[in-house]
């Protein structure tokens, strides 16, 4: 796991965090989630400019034999999507917290992010739920 800055995690394994370079919020799926999925072959991305409620379905990730839904980790507005994923969906496997992010977003209520799990709690959550 290779990431800077503060990341927040949802129970459905999405993250939201501030990118240290651009100082903007991004969302993506966790390293644990990508390893469970296996090789990602296609990503159905959310719509740019649209707002989504927390836990609303914003997209899908496909491996060869499965489809997983991506849920919004918070109330957000999509600023731009990571269109690199159209041609190189494997970025999600290689760098889920970096180049494999899903979209750049604006949290509607940044204070609400605190109800999500931080890095440590998420680690514990994984262990307790999936081992």
């Amino acid at each position: 796991m290779n990431k800077d800055g503060l990341f927040y995690f949802s129970k459905s394994h999405e993250w939201i965090g501030k990118d240290s370079n651009s100082n903007k919020y991004r969302i993506g799926i966790s390293d644990f989630a990508q390893s469970e999925l296996g090789d990602v072959v296609y990503v159905f991305l959310p719509e740019s400019g649209k707002t989504y409620r927390k836990d609303e379905k914003i997209g899908e990730i496909e491996s060869v034999k499965s489809v997983s839904e991506i849920y919004s980790p918070a109330d957000i507005k999509i600023i731009s999507i990571n269109s690199n994923l159209n041609d190189t969906p494997e970025l999600i496997n290689h760098d889920p917290f970096g180049a494999g992010y899903i979209a750049e977003v604006e949290p509607l209520n940044p204070a609400d992010l605190n109800i999500l799990m931080d890095d440590n709690s998420y680690r514990i959550f994984i262990v307790s739920h999936h081992e």
Binding site: Y42, E62, V64, K65, S66, V67
Partner: peptide, 8 residues
């Protein structure tokens, strides 16, 4: 195949 009934 993810379009199809046996997966989706």
């Amino acid at each position: 195949s993810t379009r199809e009934q046996h997966i989706r």
